[in-house]
Amino acid sequence: MNITLKKRRSQHLAFGIVSLLTYSIVAILIIILAFIIIRGIGVINWEFLSTAPTDGMTGGGIFPAIVGTCYLILGSAAFAFPVGIMSGIYMNEYAPKGKLVRFIRMMTNNLSGIPSIVFGLFGMALFVNKLSFGDSILAGSLTLALLSLPLVIRTTEEALKAIPYSFREGSYALGATKLQTIRRVTLPMALPNITTGLILAVGRVSGETAPILFTCAAYFLPQLPSGVLDQCMALPYHLYVLATSGTNMELQRPIAYGTALVLIMIVLLVNITATVVRRYFANKVKMN
């Protein structure tokens, strides 16, 4: 009896501590989000989103930074999405199972473990200096594309793996070639899960600062970039600049809150979209 009581007490205590620690993580997240939302929401309006910074970063909006981030997302997607998806297809559909796939998977994991600043160094050495793209959207996009590749490859591979082999066999039995099977059967079925990965990759690209520090990002540009060899501003770098340097910290603070909130909103949007896509797909599969 005594032992049971003791056991129950220690379990209560342990579970209490575990729950407390878990909820405190949620509390931290809520504090961070609330802090930025409350301070930033007053700053954001249409004018803030659609005008350029004025008066040495102490006034105006963040329009060029939003445009720059969009260019970087598009640029990196143009490279990383097709290559990443093709790489995922190769790993799951073509490559001989065994050592080769394991090797490629290891390389992909290793690439995803490289710190973002090292990507920045590499991008600067190869794209900016060696290929002499200079500080440009092209160099920044390629650097960011490399960084998001592992995410795209991994989600594609996993999405393809989840499709039962019988579907492919059915397609082959009807006389389809391997490529036809991939194009008409496998890929469409895996598409929702792949899309989730792509959306998450966009989220990752939109928030990265270190890789574009030396490959693309500009402190301030009076006009929007006119081509892929121009520099551009970007939201995360803009926030860094507003938070750490500048002429008037007091006047910059509200703009920094606004920029942080825009970044947070992008992340929220990305996460919600990804979750919705995933849930929608899960329901659809159940119905089948």
Partner: peptide, 12 residues
């Protein structure tokens, strides 16, 4: 969501 927040925002 916690892992999606950009590092500059954490820094800020």
């Amino acid at each position: 969501l916690l892992s999606g927040i950009p590092s500059v925002v954490y820094g800020f």
